[in-house]
């Protein structure tokens, strides 16, 4: 990879100062996506700002009814956290199945959602759970955060610091993995609260999205059988050598049914 200036600030302000107004600077958290990209010389920042020295960004805690996970919390720590397992087991389960164990030891929730890979797992949870993304500047609702493939509402130099998850009544995530990369070909996160059902789909489209027909059907009856007559429009979905869009559309429905069934079991 091309060389760069390496910075490891020990305060958030210092990190922001390094990133501010510098188009050639990139932040790095776990680096699970950025480093492979840099190795391929597809990204070549002049300055790399390592966020791993920032204090207080890897905590998991309850604030009232909200589960707050610091942006630098590794997938392995979310998966193993007794608090997450107790309060939001669907999220712990999702985290335990991201990539492989070595990826889970480096990758972070903040890095994952900031990158917004169309086949990443966390965005589905964040969107379905109607989480709030806390940044260095503001708080962004999940519905506003994920904009397009590899694109979020984050402004240049803005960093995610935490994600705030309201707790659902029941929730579950099911994914069908790409046999080669093991990323999601289709992943569906289903969350039911007292007032609504939200369903987010990753892997199938160019970016994570909410499946409104599925949500409507489940709002009427939160049961897998409620989805039997529903299908989703394949035309907006991706096609590649592993899965054409019709197949992805099918997988979304299958995973949705299985997620609902799993949510009912765990509920």
């Amino acid at each position: 990879m091309r060389s760069f200036n390496y910075h490891k600030p020990d305060t958030l302000d210092a990190a922001l100062a390094l990133l501010s107004g510098n188009d050639e600077a990139l932040p790095i958290a776990g680096g699970m996506t950025l480093l492979p990209t840099m190795k391929q010389r597809l990204a070549a920042p002049e300055d790399l700002v390592d966020l791993s020295g920032l204090p207080g960004l890897a905590d998991v805690a309850m604030e009232g009814d909200i589960l707050v996970i610091g942006a630098m919390t590794r997938h392995a720590d979310v998966a193993a956290s007794p608090l997450v397992k107790e309060k939001l087991p669907a999220l712990a389960n999702l985290a335990s199945r991201i990539g492989d164990q070595q990826v889970r030891h480096r990758g972070t929730i903040g890095g994952s959602i900031s990158n917004n890979d169309p086949a990443a797992d966390y965005p589905a949870a964040v969107l379905a759970l109607n989480a709030e993304i806390v940044t260095s500047k503001r708080t962004i609702a999940a519905d506003d955060f994920f904009v397009a493939m590899f694109e979020t509402a984050l402004e240049p130099g803005e960093l995610v610091t935490a994600i705030r998850f309201p707790l659902p009544e029941v929730a579950a995530y099911m994914k069908f993995a790409n046999p080669a990369s093991r990323y999601a070909l289709a992943g569906v996160f289903v969350a039911k609260t007292t007032s609504a059902v939200r369903v987010a789909v990753t892997g199938a489209g160019p970016s994570v999205f909410r499946a409104s027909d599925i949500e409507a059907a489940l709002a009427e009856s939160f049961d897998a059988t409620a989805l039997e007559r529903i299908s989703i429009d394949a035309s907006e979905l991706m096609s590649d050598i592993h899965a054409d869009n019709e197949y992805r559309a099918n997988l979304v429905m299958v995973m949705a049914r299985r997620a609902v069934a799993l949510a009912q079991q765990s509920g």
Partner: peptide
């Protein structure tokens, strides 16, 4: 490999297994 998949490079950092091909030495 160059896509962080094969695992031939796995080492332990602070007791955890990680892929050393996908981690900066400075880390």
């Amino acid at each position: 490999c160059d896509t962080s998949q094969c695992g031939a490079c796995v080492v332990h950092v602070n007791g955890d297994s990680v892929k050393s091909c996908t981690m900066l030495a400075v880390s």
